[in-house]
Deep mutational scan, measured.
Amino acid sequence: TTITITINGEELRIRGDHEEIHKILKAWEEDHNDEEIVRLIRELAER
């Protein structure tokens, strides 16, 4: 699965399995701050 998210003008492409993507979207849905979401995404992007 690949998704693209733009946060603060920075486009981040994430490839991951369903569970990893779900974790990010769940954090977003629960209204975590952008920095935390960006950190989760970067961790995935670095793999």
Score class of each variant (00 low, 15 high):
I3W: 01
A45L: 13
G16N: 04
E20L: 15
R13I: 15
I7T: 01
I24Q: 03
D17R: 08
R39C: 04
L44P: 00
E30I: 08
I24K: 03
T1Q: 12
H18I: 12
K23M: 07
K26S: 10
I41L: 15
L40G: 02
G16R: 02
E10W: 03
L12Q: 04
E30T: 13
I7W: 04
K23E: 09
H32A: 12
K26F: 05
T4S: 11
I21G: 01
H32C: 02
T4C: 08
H22S: 11
W28D: 00
T4M: 09
E30P: 06
I41C: 02
K26P: 01
N33G: 10
I41S: 01
K23H: 08
K26H: 13
G16F: 05
N33T: 13
E43M: 11
D31P: 04
E35K: 09
I5C: 02
R15D: 10
H18A: 13
H18Y: 15
T6Y: 08
A27W: 10
D34V: 14
E19L: 08
R39Q: 09
L12T: 04
H18F: 12
I37Y: 07
L25V: 09
E36P: 03
R42P: 01
N33Y: 15
I7A: 02
N8G: 11
I7L: 08
K26M: 12
T2L: 14
I7E: 00
E20V: 12
I37C: 03
T4A: 07
I5K: 00
I24L: 14
T6K: 13
E20S: 14
I7S: 01
R47E: 09
T4R: 09
L44F: 04
I14C: 03
I41K: 00
E46Y: 03
I21W: 06
E20I: 12
T2C: 06
N8A: 08
I24P: 00
K26D: 10
E11R: 10
R13Q: 14
E29M: 13
W28P: 00
L12E: 01
D34T: 10
G16Q: 03
E43L: 13
A27N: 06
R13S: 12
G9Q: 03
I5P: 00
D17F: 11
E11M: 11
I5A: 01
I24W: 03
A27K: 14
N8W: 06
L44S: 02
E46R: 07
E30S: 11
E30D: 10
T2W: 15
I3E: 02
H32Q: 14
T1Y: 08
E20Y: 12
I37Q: 01
I5G: 00
I37T: 10
K23P: 05
K23F: 04
R42Q: 12
A27E: 07
K23I: 07
I41R: 00
N33C: 10
E20D: 13
N8S: 05
L12S: 02
L25S: 03
E43T: 05
D17H: 11
E43Q: 13
L25Y: 04
H22Y: 07
R13T: 15
I24G: 01
K26E: 08
D34A: 15
D17E: 11
R39A: 09
E20G: 06
H22P: 00
E20A: 10
L12M: 09
D34R: 11
G16P: 02
E29S: 08
I7G: 00
E30L: 08
